[in-house]
Amino acid sequence: MIVKLEQITVQSRAGQELVDITPEVERIIAASGVRNGLVNVLTKHTSAGIIVTEGLECLEQDVVDHLERLAPDRPQEYAYYHNRYLDFDGRLGFNAGAHLKSILSGYFACFPIAEGQMVRGGRQRIYFAEYDGPLAREVVVQIIGE
């Protein structure tokens, strides 16, 4: 049994965006030596997510826009309780919308590995989803197998 853990840094460049990290995940799988097993990809952040969808720019925009409709950063009809001073951070929390988007999209993805390759649909891509950028973010890739 091989268990390998690697952390990659994703530098987001906008407030909200999807960053395709599929090539990085595949590189880590190839370097791991695992032929058959599983790969887990997860973000360490609560205002970001991991999404699997088709790799199209138009769809990326639709995902970002729809999550904003579901969990707006600045809702008109209500206010978030998260808008308060967080003494452990030394600042106000006013990114409840980003946290809620993270919950909606999820924070991880899991794929099988067979014969050294990630088993995924031809159109499936793994995205790091930024909801509160730009920031340097950490993504953990864990590979388990033999």
Binding site: Q11, P134, L135, A136
Partner: peptide, 20 residues
């Protein structure tokens, strides 16, 4: 002293904040 708990960020993040 300044009292902030956020993660360190590369200089690039600061410049991107200005840009956007």
């Amino acid at each position: 002293v300044f009292f902030i708990g956020n993660r360190l960020q590369p200089l690039e993040t600061f410049l991107l904040e200005l840009d956007i």
